[in-house]
Computed example of a mutant assay.
Amino acid sequence: MKRPVLGLAMLLIASAGIAQPKVAVLDADVQKGIDRSAASAIAEKLTERLVLSGRFIVLDRSNVEQVLREREFQLSGLVSDSEISQAGKYLGADFVVAIRVQRVDRTYMVTAKMIAVDTGIIARQASAEGEGRASLLLALAEEAGDGLAGIPRKAPAASVKRTAPKTAAAPDAAAIGTRIYGGIGTGGQHLRDDYGPESYESIGFDLYGLVGLWKGLCAVGSLTYLDAAGEYGAVTLSGDIGLGYARPLGILLPWTAVKIGYVFLDWQAYPSIQSDLQYSLDLGTDLRLGRFLLGARVQLSLAAFADSGYGLRAFQDSLWLMAGWKL
Rank of each mutant, 00 (worst) to 15 (best):
P171W: 08
Y181P: 01
T167N: 03
Y181M: 02
I184S: 02
D172W: 00
S238Q: 08
I180D: 04
L213A: 15
L223A: 15
A219Q: 05
A219S: 08
V211Q: 13
V235K: 13
G209M: 14
D172I: 08
G221K: 03
D172Y: 02
Y232F: 13
D227P: 00
Q189S: 12
C218L: 14
G204V: 10
L226T: 03
L217A: 09
G182R: 03
D227S: 12
Y208S: 01
G187I: 15
G188V: 15
A175C: 03
R192L: 10
A169Q: 10
G187H: 11
I203C: 00
G230N: 07
K215P: 01
G187Q: 10
A234V: 15
A228T: 06
A228Q: 03
G183S: 05
S222H: 07
A164T: 04
S222A: 15
I184Y: 10
C218W: 02
G209P: 05
G212M: 05
V211T: 10
T163Y: 07
L226K: 09
E198I: 13
Q189G: 10
Y232Q: 08
A234T: 15
L191H: 01
R192C: 01
Y200L: 09
L191R: 00
K166Y: 06
L207G: 08
P197I: 13
P171K: 06
A169I: 14
Y195S: 13
Y232N: 13
S202V: 10
V211E: 06
V220T: 11
A164F: 04
K166Q: 09
L217T: 11
G204H: 07
A164C: 00
W214P: 00
V220N: 00
K215L: 12
D194I: 15
G204C: 04
S238V: 03
S202D: 06
G177M: 08
Y195F: 14
T163N: 04
T186P: 00
R162K: 06
K215F: 03
Y181G: 03
A229E: 15
Y208C: 00
P165S: 13
G188N: 10
D194L: 07
L223E: 11
L226P: 00
L191Q: 03
T236M: 10
Y232V: 06
S222G: 08
G183Q: 07
T224G: 00
H190T: 09
L217H: 01
L207Y: 01
T167F: 06
A168Y: 06
T224L: 02
G196Q: 14
V235L: 12
L217G: 00
E201S: 14
G196R: 12
D172L: 05
G182A: 12
G216I: 09
G183V: 06
G212L: 11
Q189N: 09
E231M: 05
A173M: 05
V235F: 07
V211C: 07
P197N: 13
A228C: 05
H190L: 15
D172F: 03
E198K: 12
A168V: 15
Y200H: 14
V235E: 15
A173C: 04
K215H: 14
S238W: 01
A164E: 12
G177F: 11
Q189W: 03
I176D: 04
E198M: 10
Q189M: 13
D227E: 12
D206V: 01
I180E: 07
G183D: 05
P197L: 09
A164P: 00
A219C: 09
A169E: 15
